[in-house]
């Protein structure tokens, strides 16, 4: 398998400026809340027999990978409905990381999320089709497909992006800005939104999270359901305290084939109960955070970045 889908290789991706976590422009979320909390359910479709990408394997086993595929299929039959009901019960409106082909395969799931007032952004066509190796026209095509597909299915114009299976090219950010996207969930350098350097237009990074992603919790850190719930509460408590100086963002990225399992959903519900009852959180959607940041903070943060380091 080839290792390098793009040449030449660079060492600094040049995506953003270094901004110390000190004396920052004070972000104030609506209602003067110190922390914005958004939940990102990944509503995905994984193909049972996808074509091979030269730079990354999809399933680790010969097709059909019964456990791999059926575990993820659990999301659309069982997990989504369970997770959505719990979120609704505690007043959390999702921002969906969507495999847009789900609009064709299971419109019932997409319609349910849309009816609940959830926002959508694109997570590619399928989570089994990767961007590695695509030329500019191909990458543009999956963005256009995403915008068109979600608009037709939900009426929403998507403004956000999380690359399919987190597979990027060095063109991704420029293309997003050019095509009218306002935020990317692909960069993990901060607990606040911030400007991303793009060739034309404006694009911001939206704090998503790998570290408190349920996939990391359960498949990388091997947490028990209660350990994961405790992790989310610690993350929340710390970011809420720090947000008093300058507003922070906490994202809870979910996959309902994981969090929607019967041994996990109960402890997770306690987290939502905790955050909803706390009162410090602006419980919101990524697009609303992006809009607020762009209207109130983008220019100030950009100006701050231009300060000489010694000032």
């Amino acid at each position: 398998m080839d290792k390098t889908p793009q040449t030449p290789l660079v060492n600094d991706p040049g995506l953003y400026d270094f901004r110390p976590y000190r004396d920052r422009h004070p972000i104030r979320w609506p209602g003067d809340k110190p922390i914005a909390v958004w939940i990102s359910p990944n509503l995905e479709f994984y193909e049972i027999d996808p074509p091979a990408n030269p730079f990354r394997k999809s399933w680790t086993k010969p097709h059909p990978d019964v456990v791999g595929y059926s575990h993820r299929d659990y999301a659309n039959r069982v997990g989504h409905w369970r997770m959505a009901e719990v979120m609704e019960r505690h007043g959390f409106t999702g921002t969906v990381s969507l495999s847009v082909a789900l609009c064709q395969h299971h419109p019932e799931v997409v319609e349910n999320a849309n009816a609940l007032g959830w926002e959508f952004f694109s997570h590619g066509i399928y989570n089994t089709r990767y961007t590695y190796g695509m030329d500019e026209a191909q990458e543009r095509a999956i963005m256009e497909d995403s915008v068109r597909t979600v608009r037709e299915a939900t009426g929403q114009r998507i403004r956000g992006w999380l690359a399919p299976a987190l597979t990027h090219t060095t063109r991704t950010m420029d293309l997003l800005a050019e095509m009218g996207f306002t935020y990317t969930c692909d960069l993990y350098h901060d607990d606040q939104p911030g400007p991303v350097h793009v060739a034309r237009g404006r694009l911001i990074s939206m704090p998503y999270s790998l570290e408190v992603n349920d996939h990391y919790g359960f498949a990388v850190y091997n947490m028990s359901p209660r350990e994961y719930a405790d992790t989310l509460i610690r993350q929340y408590e710390r970011l809420a305290r720090e947000g008093e100086a300058s507003g922070t963002v906490m994202c809870i990225p979910l996959h309902s084939y994981l969090i929607g399992q019967p041994h996990r959903i109960g402890p997770f519900e306690e987290v939502l109960r905790h955050i909803a009852a706390d009162g410090r959180a602006w419980i919101t959607r990524a697009g609303d955070i992006a809009q607020h940041f762009l209207a109130h903070d983008y220019d100030a943060v950009t100006a701050e970045t231009a300060r000489p380091a010694a000032e």
Binding site: P5, Q6, T7, F45, E47, I48, D49, P51, N53, P54, P64, D73, N76, R77, V78, W81, R82, A101, Q104, H105, H106, P107, E108, I125, Y126, R129, G133, M134, D135, A137, Q138, A141, I142
Partner: peptide, 29 residues
């Protein structure tokens, strides 16, 4: 560099599953 054009074709992008073993069904319905 580019991928084979077939990588952006989705012959099983359709209502329901991408195979014929079982139909989709919502547990709660």
């Amino acid at each position: 560099m580019s991928l084979d054009p077939s990588y952006l074709e989705y012959p099983r992008r359709r209502r329901g599953m991408d195979h014929d073993l079982y139909p989709w069904s919502n547990l709660f319905d």
